[in-house]
Nucleic acid binder design. Structure first.
Length: 447
RNA sequence: UCCUCGGUAGCUCAAUUGGCAGAGCAUGCGGCUGUUAACCGCACGGUUGUUGGUUCGAGUCCAACCCGGGGAGCCA
């Protein structure tokens, strides 16, 4: 019996007889030759069947195999430049074929398909090489996230998904029935994270979050994953240093471990190679000037066919503003000190200039938008109470949150990083729905 | 919620001024020893999103609705 080998390990077995077990990704043939592209989850390998090397029955069976039929093939591994595949360059000179199941006619052919059709068949679309590659990268992104945080003294303390009220009061939440009381699916774990740092110092929560906004764009999902680190004794400047190291680590590990996947995705990795500390930092004031200078010159927003819209100081940026700003830099760029009134109530105002706060967003290049949002949190109990009142939030709901400032308050900061946006950026995907296995969008909940 | 584009064979698309609904892929059969989304021949494949209207005649024009794509707002 030949040993069962996975395709990404094939290069170690040149000249040996091995067995691959997987599925037919595509098949072509020429008379006495059959070429099977075999997938096994780790890659794609071409299995070449010459009529004289197998029994007539096996050859006939192989010739009749439909896409996605499951099988075991045994043969000699050869280094072969002509062999397509992932990673490619190796093929199997087949000696025997065992069909596990001859698949029914498979709906997703190697030709082009529309989004609606593919999403309806998402459970099968996952097998296609681009989808496979993007989700492999996602797995590495998540592993890199946990690796960096775990190696840098952060404790994973997860926060509740069922919550009693909006954390920030603005976004639409999914409401559910909590034994007769309304409850909401969490849109952030941040307030709970702040409680956790006073117990553990540096923490992160990592899980799904939910937004019921009627957003119908390539940059939005109803359900997405977010990692939220929170750090005690940390100010805004230190937060930016943490973020740039964290994000650089994620990108660099994908570049190291996902060469084949990024090649399948045809990702130009030159800009990703640049993603190392430090990232450019621009103040909101400066960002407004850049935007208005562009607007005055009638410059177009990259990727759109429209001019950069002017902005008044004090307004939050719209998508075209963010896209224009990010396009001015080759690395992710920090935009910090947004106007206090457009940001959440808990962000620390700048002491000598309270109209701006110690907030920071990280904008990814190439139009991928905001991948992190964070801030230094308000640490003075009296100021926080005033901010809660100013935002018309109910004091009693924030009793426990105010307690955190009564018993040993310290300067602290944190941020959230959106996993799908990060994956989409690293992979060069044109839509967030391909950065998660079963995306929940405004129009899609099945399968 | 608003703006915008679209819906024709299982899939991707075409159909001139309103005049016989057509290709490629997939599938089936046959051929080919190096295919890369192979190629060649033959076959199979249709309630043109729904309802109503205009017309001798509607895939095509009009109205309403349904479904989907992209974008704005909001955000990660």
């Amino acid at each position: 019996m030949a040993p069962i080998v996975s395709i990404h390990q094939l290069y170690k077995h040149v000249g040996e007889e091995v067995t691959l077990q997987g599925w037919v990704y595509n098949r072509t043939g020429k008379g006495k030759l059959q070429f099977l592209q075999v997938r096994d989850g780790t890659g794609i390998c071409q299995a070449v069947i010459f009529k004289g090397n197998v029994s007539p029955e096996e050859f006939a069976e192989a010739k009749a195999l439909g896409q996605e039929s499951s099988l075991r093939v045994t043969g000699i591994v050869k280094a072969e430049e002509r062999a397509p595949g992932v990673p490619g360059g190796y093929e199997l000179d087949v000696r025997s074929v065992e069909v596990v199941q001859a698949a029914e006619e498979y709906p997703i052919s190697p030709k082009e398909h529309g989004v609606e059709f593919l999403m309806a068949n998402r459970h099968l679309w996952l097998r296609s090489s681009r989808q496979w590659a993007a989700l492999r990268v996602r797995g590495v992104v998540i592993s890199a996230i946990r690796e960096w945080l775990d190696d840098n003294g952060y404790l994973n303390v997860d926060t509740p998904i069922l919550t009693p009220a909006a954390a920030e009061g603005t976004t639409t939440l999914f409401e559910i029935d909590y034994h007769g009381e309304p409850a909401y699916l969490a849109q952030t774990g941040q307030l709970y994270n702040e409680a956790n740092i006073f117990a553990f110092g540096k923490v992160y929560c990592f899980g799904p979050t939910f937004r019921a906004e009627k957003s119908k764009t390539r940059r939005h999902l109803q359900e997405f994953w977010m990692v939220e680190p929170e750090i005690a004794f940390c100010d805004l400047d230190e937060l930016m240093e943490i973020e740039e190291q964290f994000v650089s680590h994620i990108v660099q590990r994908c570049l190291r471990e996902c060469r084949a996947e990024l090649a399948v995705l045809e990702r130009d990795t030159t800009l990703l190679e640049n993603v190392t500390p430090s990232f450019p930092r621009i103040h909101y004031d400066e960002a407004v000037e850049m935007i208005n200078a562009a607007a005055a010159q009638g410059l177009l927003v990259p990727g759109y066919d429209e001019p950069v819209p002017a902005i008044e100081w004090g307004e939050d940026f719209g998508s075209p503003h963010e896209t224009y700003l990010a396009a001015q830099f080759e690395k992710p760029v920090f935009v910090h000190h947004y106007p206090t009134r457009v940001k959440a109530f808990y962000m620390e105002p700048e002491p000598d200039r309270p109209e701006v706060c110690r907030s920071v967003d990280l904008l990814a290049p190439e139009g991928y938008g905001e991948i992190t949002g964070g801030s230094e949190r308000m640490s003075d109990p009296a100021k926080l109470l005033a901010a809660i009142d100013q935002h018309d939030l109910p004091r009693e709901a924030y009793d426990w949150y105010l307690d955190l400032r009564r018993y040993g308050s310290v300067v602290h900061s944190g941020f959230g990083l959106g996993v799908e946006r990060t994956v989409a950026w690293i992979c060069g995907l044109d839509h967030l729905r391909e950065a998660t296995a079963f995306p929940r969008t405004l129009t899609t909940m099945r399968p």
